[in-house]
Design a protein around this nucleic acid. Structure first.
Lengths: 336, 336
DNA sequence: TTGTAGGCGTTATCAG
DNA sequence: CTGATAACGCCTACAA
């Protein structure tokens, strides 16, 4: 417990023989201070081990360098990849990150939003476009830039970077049909807004081809796991044994379906086509490799932070709406 | 942009007809304020939508309610599970979390530590016991409680909750030998301090049984992926084709080994035993199910935060060193 | 280019 | 139980 008094601006100032404000300026906008004084100040800062006080700075300037990030899950691979992009994008910037875990609850999200706003966040990253009414209002009148990530299907509050989950679901379903599968099923867990959009795309596309049957839909609000994928696939086969392909909500589900099919000696892709979503790293090396929709999660995080920081700096990006796209990766699990 | 002036303590005070400090007290220690006044204050707070200013509070009290958490990766499943435990443990407490991503770099860790300390964190959670010298010094003299997590193999700075990676590695290796495998190999990626401890246990245990051969070790500093597991297994077979079992650094590697073995038509567990580490959810439902060492990651996070909060509250736990154990789960991949 | 004055919103201290 | 006063460390505005 070092009880030494904290080193402050004026300590540095005294040491150098200038006033505190000059030190403050030297640190924030060096070009406004003469070279000689500046050098001396830097030396003294180094010497004394001065570290600016975040609280005092925030109080005095009514601004912070904290960017708030709201995501629905810290364990879901999808969001940890986005997070990684965000961390990468924030490196070598003066900004710190404060993470809020909404656990897929719009109420938690609203609460966390209030906390962040009350802490005068410099900017906000929020997931999706399905906030509560109050939350949307808070965001709309937020005194800082806001980037929504993950999806472009809805109208953003400020800026957005994502892709169309509807189009992605459509592409996956069309692929299954193109590969000759006649009885495609949908397996989904969690059923968050983006999953629901993918499901709607599946239903619409299958209907258009006369291949939709509500019996071939297995969903649950429970979070996705590999185990759950296997179970839902079992349920599905019980009600619709003629199923010949599955569009899975995500890759965990897809992997569970694959393992369960192998256990039941159902041959992939001959008797069963499998398509996942997100293209986690392991999809390419599974046996057989699994078709999936690649979503640029890392890039999404990185772009979002880049846009946000630009906007915080006062130069909002020309295009506040970025569709970062997706990519269908055709693999052996659907006969490619 | 709501340009309404911020609601402050004195706004509430004026409204109620008391002084600001009374409002402050009513909010922090209600029992010190008369019931009538207290009620009026609560009503006014609600009415006006008063939200305490974090910066002002920190500045005035030289204390914060921010707990700093330093982890080496945000994408690694292991740490996201720990994180989930931490978030759960912090729910319904007045504390906020600030995450620091060290990316397995002791230098980044040291830097982040300085940032957290300069922001007067209320407490710190750091990963492992292998900090830089400077970082250890900083931690030792930190003006707040510190919990180290993940491992109990070394001497902690303050508190620790984890398990012995050496013992876990030993248990896994002994299991492979007990199952009759004679030529066990080790495959490891990242090779962080904890992985190294597990490897040492493997080497020691295999040696003791006369079953150690340095040719049956494949490691890389690259991060673990399923793909990498397959590749390293390929490398291993090239140099030591007689390998009959693999102790994998972690479950991603184990899964990669399994897929690669299936691709090469090597029968599991007859010709090859596979043991993973961490027991990710999918291990139990893989085909075949994969033996692994379960590590209580969620609980670790939860316990760590609980201990920390107790300590912040002034009552450090009686036992500052918690060994949370591990559990070997024997499955078909090793003939169980 | 540098400095002076004042205040950001809260809490510690000490009286009453 | 309640209040006055003085910080906390820094920054904005204005002045020199």
């Amino acid at each position: 417990m070092s009880d030494y008094r904290k080193i402050t601006l004026s300590d540095v100032a005294t040491r150098v023989g200038v006033s505190a404000i000059t030190v403050s300026r030297a640190l924030r906008s060096p070009e406004k201070v003469s070279v000689v004084v500046r050098e001396k100040i830097f030396a003294a800062v180094e010497d004394l081990g001065y570290v600016p006080d975040a609280a005092a700075r925030a109080l005095a300037s009514s601004r912070t360098n904290v960017i708030g990030v709201l995501i629905p899950s810290v364990t879901n691979n999808v969001f940890s990849d986005v997070l990684k992009g965000i961390y990468t994008g924030i490196e070598n910037t003066p900004f710190d990150l404060q993470l809020g875990n909404t656990r897929y609850s719009v109420l938690s999200e609203e609460q966390l939003l209030r906390v962040f706003l009350s802490q005068r966040s410099a900017g906000l990253v929020v997931t999706g476009t399905d906030q509560s009414g109050a939350a949307r209002a808070l965001l709309a009148s937020a005194p800082c830039p806001v980037v929504q990530i993950m999806e472009t299907d809805n109208e953003p509050v400020d800026m957005v970077v994502g892709f169309s989950h509807y189009q992605a679901g459509q592409a996956a379903t069309e692929h299954l049909l193109a590969q000759g599968y006649k009885k495609p099923a949908f397996i989904g867990a969690r059923m968050d807004p983006r999953t629901q959009r993918r499901f709607r795309a599946f239903a619409d596309t299958a209907k258009k081809a006369g291949a939709f049957d509500p019996a071939r839909v297995a969903t649950t609000p429970a979070p996705s796991t590999v185990t759950l994928g296997g179970q839902l696939f079992g349920d599905l086969l019980a009600t619709a044994p003629d199923t010949d392909a599955v569009f899975c909500n995500n890759d965990d589900i897809a992997l569970g379906v694959m393992f369960e099919a192998q256990r039941r000696r159902i041959s992939i892709p001959e008797s069963l086509g499998i398509c996942g979503f997100n293209d986690l790293e392991m999809m390419a090396v599974a046996e057989p490799p699994i078709t999936s929709v690649r979503t640029p999660r890392f890039e999404m995080g990185q772009r979002a932070i880049a846009m946000l920081i630009e906007a915080i700096g006062g130069t909002p990006p020309a295009r506040p709406l970025v569709d970062i796209g997706f990519q269908l990766l055709r693999r052996r699990s659907t006969g490619c």
